[in-house]
């Protein structure tokens, strides 16, 4: 199979206006061009990526990156976002993977990404799972419902700011976060004995 750089060059040559970045072994594509790039991977005779083996989401909180430039410390603020990683394989050519990454704008509410289910039917349940646990709305998905949690559930449990319902019970040795949680349930200390005057 071609290297990531070769694939990047061929995609950029074939699809005018598409700019890809390489991060590690994966290609980072923006939201507008995700479908075009996925279609290219599928239809290109050299690559013939016909199988999405994995589609997983990630949650990135807002962060700061400190770097040194010319003896100055530069602080860059990275906004929080949700990221989806796609792994494409070719069963016809028996090669792969080609890894794509695509990021949402912000992470508040239910940010959206284009759905690749119309191209790859195998992504249907995996996109539903990413929607269920991370709250990414996949535009164009034929049946976007929760898949693991029940329909009336409001939270997105794999988000980093998810807090489970407070139903802590007796713990023999509470520590750290559990201790903080346990302290909220402790009964009030007994009133101090009143000294006789």
């Amino acid at each position: 199979m071609e290297t990531v750089d070769q694939i990047k060059d061929r995609i950029e040559a074939a699809l005018p206006g598409v700019r890809l970045a390489i991060e590690g072994k994966s290609l980072v594509v923006d939201r507008q061009h995700l479908l075009d790039v996925a279609r290219f991977l599928k239809t290109d005779s050299e690559l013939a990526m016909d199988y999405v083996s994995n589609l997983c989401a990630m949650d990135w909180l807002p962060s700061q990156i400190k770097t040194r430039e010319c003896d100055r410390e530069v602080v860059r603020n990275l906004p929080g976002h949700l990221e989806v990683v796609y792994d494409f394989y070719s069963t016809a050519k028996k090669h792969g993977p080609v890894q794509l990454r695509c990021r949402t704008e912000g992470r508040e509410g239910t940010p959206s990404l284009p759905s690749i289910t119309p191209l790859f039917r195998g992504a249907e349940f995996q996109e539903r799972e990413a929607f269920d646990l991370y709250g990414i709305r996949f535009e164009g998905h034929p049946d976007l419902r929760r898949i693991l949690m029940w329909d009336g559930f409001k939270d997105f449990p794999m988000r980093k700011d998810y807090r489970p319902p407070d139903d802590y019970e007796w713990e023999p040795t509470p520590h750290d976060e559990v201790l903080q949680q346990t302290k909220k349930h402790w009964p009030a200390p007994p009133p101090a004995p009143v000294k006789p005057a």
């Binding site: 019970e169 007796w170 402790w186 009964p187």
Partner: peptide, 8 residues
């Protein structure tokens, strides 16, 4: 369900 009450 009657758990042991939280003890301080």
């Amino acid at each position: 369900w009657k758990p042991e009450p939280m003890k301080r």
